[in-house]
Structure formats: structure tokens, C-alpha cells
Nucleic acid binder design. Sequence first.
DNA 1: ATGCCGTGGAAACCACGA
Length: 258
Amino acid sequence: MKIATYNVNGVNGRLPVLLQWLQESTPDVVCLQELKAPQEKFPEKAIQDAGYHAIWHGQKSWNGVAILARNEQPVEVRRGLPGEAEDDQSRYIEATVNGILICCLYLPNGNPAPGPKFDYKLRWFERLTAHAAELFASGKPVVLTGDYNVMPTEIDVYKPERWGDDALFRPEVRQAFKTLVDQGWTDAIRKLYPDEKIYTFWDYFRNAYSRDAGLRIDHFLLSPHLDKRLIAAGVNRNVRGWEKTSDHAPVWIELADE
DNA sequence: ATGCCGTGGAAACCACGA
């Protein structure tokens, strides 16, 4: 079973790239972030024609998350994280697919830091961590995946010395990621490739992709049950080189059948 | 060191992203 996450940076503007990648990669489950489309503008028909059923939480202009499943209907469990009723940003959706709880998240960027956006990021992280603790305690097979907007360690940044004050790399944020992982989750990429330079995002400008000036900010966290089933993981970096592409590349894991 | 690029929405610029 292959599960992927992809920050598309505009699902409608990215539709040809998304469909091409789905056709080439044929993931069983896909988590999308940054739809940048209101609920009624999600390209449901095109995605259905590609063989995927979907649930999504849209929002005008910004944010937006979706879960796709090939030849199967994702069964929605919740949309939105608990803990802040006034939070109206579409950044979290959760569904069951094939017995696995799929949690698709788009963690706030948080810049500029310090400031209210950074405070929101840290609050959102705390809410995610609280919810993740409940999911972990349930003992169910769980995947927490998406755009975390955090580089966990120095090897996840092309030039860590330049990123120390950035909201994606500040100590509080790295600590928040560590606190979450330390509940017992497995960072799938780092389990399989503990020392390799692996990026999932490259800026559009300054030729970041061709210079390989990248960041690793899209992650898969696995519950212990799924950690045992993990057989492969990677980044479809070539997709970042396509025309009209996102600034993120798709990230994927492969789980052994039960 | 820096939104230099890209997207969406509204209005021929601005907010926002990482």
C-alpha cells in the first residue's frame, strides 16, 4: 500500500501536474495540502476520472486539505483540530482508508517570527500534539502526514546557519516536532535514511531546485503498528522539475500488506 | 540578506507562501 503527501500550491492551477503524477505514481492514498480553492471549486470530476474518490476541506484563496483514495471512498472521521473553536483555517482532515487512520495536515508557516502568526503556529502545534496523543493511545494504525512547515534537524536544511530565526527552524518549533515524535511516532524517511540529505521543498526563485537549495518539511509519522509494516519511502523529486509545478515535491511511503 | 517566483482574488495591485 502506497501513501503519498503532496503540497500542490493551488489544486486547480496544478491539475495537469497532479493528474500526471497520479498516473505515473499510482499511490493508493494521497494527502493534499494548499488546495487554495473554495469547497465548490475542488476538481472532483477530474480526480474521479483519474480513479480516485476524495474528501476535502476547501477555503477561499488559502489553505485547504484533501484525502484521495484509489478505487475506494475515504471515510471521513473529522475535519479541523479540536481545541480552538474560532480557528477557521482549513488545515486538517482525517479519514479511514483500508483500516488505517489517515491524518492530513497543513501546519501554519508561522512567519514572521516572533509575532501573532508564530504564536498561532505554536498553538496549532500544541493542538496537533494533544490530538496525536489520543490517537496514539487508541492503539490504532495511524499515519500523521502533510506539510509540517518544520525542518526537524540541521541535515534537513541546505544552509542551517541561515535559518535559525525563521519560523520553520526556530528552536521552539523543532522542539515541538520532537515532542510530538517522542510520543512514540516513527519519522518514516529518517528511519530508512537516517543520515541522507533529503528535501521535499525548493523555493521557486534563485534557482533553488537546480542548486538543490532545499528543505525537508513534508513528513510521515507512523504509529508502531505501521512502523513494523514500513518497507520503503521516498520523494518524487523529479516532479519538482516539471513545468508549472508546485514548490513542494510529493513524498511517499510503502507499507507491507498485513 | 533578500519574496528575486508563483497563486488566487480582486482589480490591473495585493496578500501570502517558506
